[in-house]
Design a protein around this nucleic acid. Structure first.
Length: 272
DNA sequence: CTAACTACCTGAACGC
DNA sequence: TGCGTTCAGGTAGTTA
């Protein structure tokens, strides 16, 4: 479900609710594969940061709680005005205590692709994708020349390479299609020249920044901690619009499967 | 090492 | 209405 803009929107609401609170209790669904989260009990949250699609709560005692929403994960708090009540899809519950009245935080995840883990701070060897994560796209670490060099090194088609999280962090299926459309790059391309790599660098940053400003894209499951949807879906140009006219050239957008993922693009203005 | 598959889950939408 | 098939915003594990 969530890519960088959605995860960032969750982080902005989750941070104030977790910060400066001590995790007093953890219960997890017995079928969930993150039973070691109870190692967070007794530790106080310093802050919640984001790396790519991962949320990382800093804990005292040199630990971190790493959270990934998978396709359908969301965090909700009991007793808030949105009327959230836990249902059959709650996979973990954290009881938080601290400034204010404390809080009960549910991790809801229909498809069970989400993950929670407690690790030594900065030690991500048990989470391979996080350990090898590329630069943050909206930071100065994301450099156009190094991005071009990374695209030159791989033999894989450009879209699956973006989805690997290695050339840049946080780009998923929606924003890969959107950025490639903007930069006029064919998702199958195995060679991307310097000018096109720079155009893609710019498109990734623009597409993600605009989506963050609209609090993400809600297609089906994604919702923020307060239960609201993102507003970016109406602004998508490529993703989910197969058969509709390309806004640039009016050619009906094509849909193919690439790297096992549905891919929508314009075969006329995104030539190989 | 990389690239390409498959597996992991559940529900909604669609075709007949 | 009912049943089977396909698809879904992600990653981890295995194989060549």
């Amino acid at each position: 479900m969530p890519e960088l803009p959605e995860v960032e929107s969750v982080r902005r609401q989750l941070g104030p609710r977790m910060r400066c609170r001590t995790i007093r209790a953890v219960t997890v669904d017995p079928q969930a594969r993150f039973a070691d989260v109870d190692r967070a009990v007794g530790h106080r949250v310093s802050d919640v940061v984001r790396r790519g699609k991962y949320l990382i709560a800093g804990l005292d005692g040199g630990l971190e709680l790493v959270m990934h929403l998978g396709m359908t994960g969301s965090f909700r708090f009991r007793g808030e005005a949105d009327g959230w009540a836990p249902d059959a899809y709650v996979r973990a519950t954290l009881t938080l205590e601290g400034a204010g009245d404390g809080a009960v935080m549910d991790f809801r995840d229909v498809r069970r692709f989400g993950r929670l883990a407690v690790v030594p701070a900065g030690d991500y060897h048990s989470i391979a994708t996080l350990a090898r994560l590329g630069p943050e796209p909206l930071s100065d670490d994301f450099d156009p020349d190094r991005f071009h060099a990374a695209l030159t090194r791989t033999r894989a088609p450009v879209k699956p390479f973006l989805l690997s999280q290695r050339p840049v962090a946080g780009v998923g299926n929606i924003y890969a299609d959107e950025a490639l459309w903007r930069a006029r790059i064919n998702p199958h391309s195995r060679r991307v020249g310097r000018a096109r790599a720079h155009a893609l660098w710019l498109a990734i940053r623009a597409v993600l920044a605009e989506a963050i400003a609209r609090e993400g894209t809600t297609f089906r499951d994604y919702q923020m901690v307060n239960g609201e949807s993102g507003r970016n879906a109406a602004f998508l140009v490529a993703y989910g619009r197969a058969g509709r006219p390309c806004p640039r050239c009016a050619t009906p957008l094509s849909k193919v499967v690439l790297g096992g993922r549905g891919t929508t693009y314009c075969r006329v203005c995104q030539r190989r």
